[in-house]
Design a protein around this nucleic acid. Structure first.
Lengths: 215, 215
DNA sequence: AATATCTGAATGAATACACATTCATTTATT
DNA sequence: AATAAATGAATGTGTATTCATTCAGATATT
């Protein structure tokens, strides 16, 4: 039971190798070597190279969603939930650099199948955010004109880009806590010190123009 | 001068084909066919397949940065600049779906070179955002505790994720204007209706904890 | 307890094939 | 006629996948 669990070893090796070279530039032989397994052995556990990638996503993403949901259940304050989500997300990325890189970089391959696939799993993850927003709106804490569907993407996107920075550059200028705090504060309070001056008396009339409704 | 400009035709064909299949799943033969050119002709204009991708990025990204900078010069109100940036970004994505998909999906390939590459060009683009923030802070409009380096990523990330949604799903639930308006409002004003209740009297002491200064 | 038989997980050399790139030839331009 | 541009069939390489073979351990036979 020490050298066993080939499945797990292959997955872990693949995460490492895919993160290192990218999916298309990774050789099955390299994964096999990393896992201390023969090339052919991989095909006893996976149908093909692509199947390994899918499995990584499937198995690991599930864990993440579960972890986050569980953590959020410890408070019912929407503001705090948002901040917790940010912190959790960034922490998970930091703890699993290789996995994060694969999810961020490789799973964006435009294969039709992957598009669908990513959507399904991600929908669930994004859903967490929009639920928080709706909860906050019901409690009268969040503005009613905030569209949860847009918000969830904006919030996730902000975290995601911040992660990418870490994943790709590896030299972190900001800590997880600082980043999580800042980002959730942007979204909660905005960045305005005083009300914005000209927005009412604007006259530019350049490209953009239209109403969008006061509120 | 009608059937000429092979360079341009190849680039345009490649944008289409890469967006359709992804870089690695695209065949030179397919690009050649799409451009009405012989396979070999492509090698009269480009060193190799990868060179085509680089060129797409180099040529098109430059145009975009120029356009956005020019547009922002029409106002000196930081708030408005932020909203214009959002609108411009999303508009450009909408107008160039294929290109947007390539920049979003393909250029995230983890090849070492591309990492560096993306960074250089993107730095310039992100720089635009942080400049707006600093300008706003100097004018006393934006809060001083906002870190421009984090903000630029958060803001760009929010727009980027919104774009991805459009690029991948193609069925737009929200218009460009609505999205740009919402996203810039999130960042300017936050989403709070009333001050958040518990944040002061929080006791959870779960994972996160730290200050960041009142203001 | 010793020996024979079976089993299927693991191996890695051999296979098969897709496709980027080349270049001898053809076609257009001057 | 000379030069340049374009062609596309042929080449060669790289690598995912296969499969005949091995062999450690389980099970049966004596």
């Amino acid at each position: 039971m020490k050298v066993a669990d080939k499945h797990g070893r292959i997955i872990q090796a693949a995460i490492k190798v895919f993160a290192r070279n990218g999916f298309f530039n990774s050789r099955i032989a390299e994964i096999a070597k990393e896992a201390n397994v023969a090339d052919g052995t991989i095909y006893l556990y996976f149908n093909n190279k692509y199947d390994i990638l899918i499995t990584i996503f499937e198995e690991e993403m599930g864990k993440i969603i579960a972890t986050v949901k569980q953590e959020l259940a410890t408070t019912d304050n929407p503001c705090e939930k948002l901040e917790m989500f940010a912190f959790q997300h960034l922490s998970l990325v930091e703890k699993n650099k290789d996995l994060a890189e694969i999810i961020q970089v490789e799973l964006r391959q435009s294969s039709k199948f992957m598009k669908e696939y990513r959507n399904r799993k991600f929908a669930e993850y994004l859903q967490i955010i929009s639920s928080i927003v709706r909860e906050g709106q019901e409690k009268g804490i969040f503005r009613k004109d905030v569209m949860p569907g847009i918000f969830k993407r904006a919030f996730f996107g902000a975290l995601d880009e911040m992660s990418r920075f870490w994943v790709l550059s590896s030299k972190k200028k900001y800590g997880v806590k600082t980043a999580a705090k800042q980002i959730s504060q942007f979204f909660l309070n905005g960045i305005l010190e005083s009300p914005c001056p000209a927005l009412s008396k604007v006259k530019k009339v350049k490209t953009r123009r239209k109403k969008v409704g006061k509120k």
